[in-house]
Design a protein around this nucleic acid. Structure first.
Lengths: 195, 195
DNA sequence: CCGCCGCGTTATCCCGGGTTAAGAAACGCT
DNA sequence: AGCGTTTCTTAACCCGGGATAACGCGGCGG
């Protein structure tokens, strides 16, 4: 996982600034099932997944989970909306596999970025892409059926299908495990359907 | 509508830079029902609503509309995701009332912002808040019923209720006009319910 | 003044998905 | 290996909301 190359795709970044970033980073290891964010906790760090897989989810008053995202190697992991709002976390982040994170202290990062044109540009580009992803998700909820959302998920993240329990996939696409099971039965029953 | 004060809420902004922004802006008037973005068109401008009301929506292959947002005085209006991706618009933006926009040429804005720390910071903060709003919407689709989403809409944007045709509200919360009508009948039938 | 059209409501019918429950298969732990 | 737990499936039942259609109302243009 070449972090430098990855950041460069967002915009120009000098080796010096990159070095400063690396210096404020810390590796953190999560056992399978371990949490690194829980509701109520202040958001002090964000992270890049170096290895493994995490899920981001809410739990409502009645104890129902809603999975917001799965994040694997090279992807961003944090209670991002809360970080932006400087509010305590409202989301759980849990490792689905043994995971290594590269974490960054938010305060240190902002101190670095404060007067850095290239880091502000990078950070801006970074949120922009996350905004686009959220809008894509809005689109899927507005215009696709549960079955279409499932097929989309399978198409886009095939590598996850084998690592994520099905009820969590169901939660991600906004239905119950039972409903997903029915959809799967339906889909596999149809031999090479039109879609 | 004090644009300067509004921008200041996002972060520091010198009068000089603000002046430069104003110089690249252009007012644009939309008649009721007029469009200022349509699918296929390149995204050359973004805008702030000075007066009036617009709606942002997609239309799918079968001609079904999905309303993404309503934007009134002081709010941002543009096919933002497409602008970020530098792709042609996929969304319609239509005036629901006679509307005045303050438009900004994207290329001119980026030229101004390119080397401006304060504009990069502002732009970053700006997307961040839009990201938070999208995540809120994701939350509503994941965890609220249609009725709860309707009540939420009523609570948050009461001023819009009288100006927006009901079928567009229905589309915004992700249901059909008929379903919204039923929900309204249900809701008004219950005298001061639990809440 | 009349006819049209867009909008909201209501009714009917149907389907997708929620809920609950029970059973089967896979996994982990001791 | 034995046991419990988690995961997935299937079935029965219910309900919210989609599709369609009929009706009423209000606005608007002729």
């Amino acid at each position: 996982m070449d972090l430098y190359a990855q950041l460069l795709r967002l915009g120009p970044l000098s080796k010096a600034t990159y070095g400063a970033l690396v210096r404020i980073s810390e590796e953190r290891v999560l056992a399978k099932q371990a949490f690194w964010s829980e509701p109520g906790a202040p958001v002090t760090h964000f992270a890049i997944v170096l290895e493994g897989l995490v899920r981001h989810f809410y739990v409502d008053a009645k104890g129902r989970e809603s999975v917001k995202a799965f994040r694997a190697r090279g992807e961003f992991s944090a209670p991002y909306a809360e970080l932006i709002q400087r509010k305590p976390s409202r989301t759980f982040i849990q490792a689905l596999e043994p995971t290594r994170l590269l974490t960054f202290d938010v305060v240190k990062f902002e101190a670095l970025a404060e007067d850095s044109l290239e880091l502000q540009r990078l950070a801006r580009r970074f949120v922009e892409l996350h905004f686009v992803a959220k809008e894509q998700r809005e689109y899927e909820f507005l215009q696709l059926t549960a079955e279409q959302r499932y097929r989309q998920f399978c198409a886009e993240r095939p590598e996850h299908l084998s690592h994520i329990p099905q009820h969590q996939v169901a939660s991600y696409i906004g239905i119950t495990p039972v409903a997903l099971s029915r959809i799967r039965a339906r889909v596999s029953g149809r031999r090479t359907p039109v879609g």
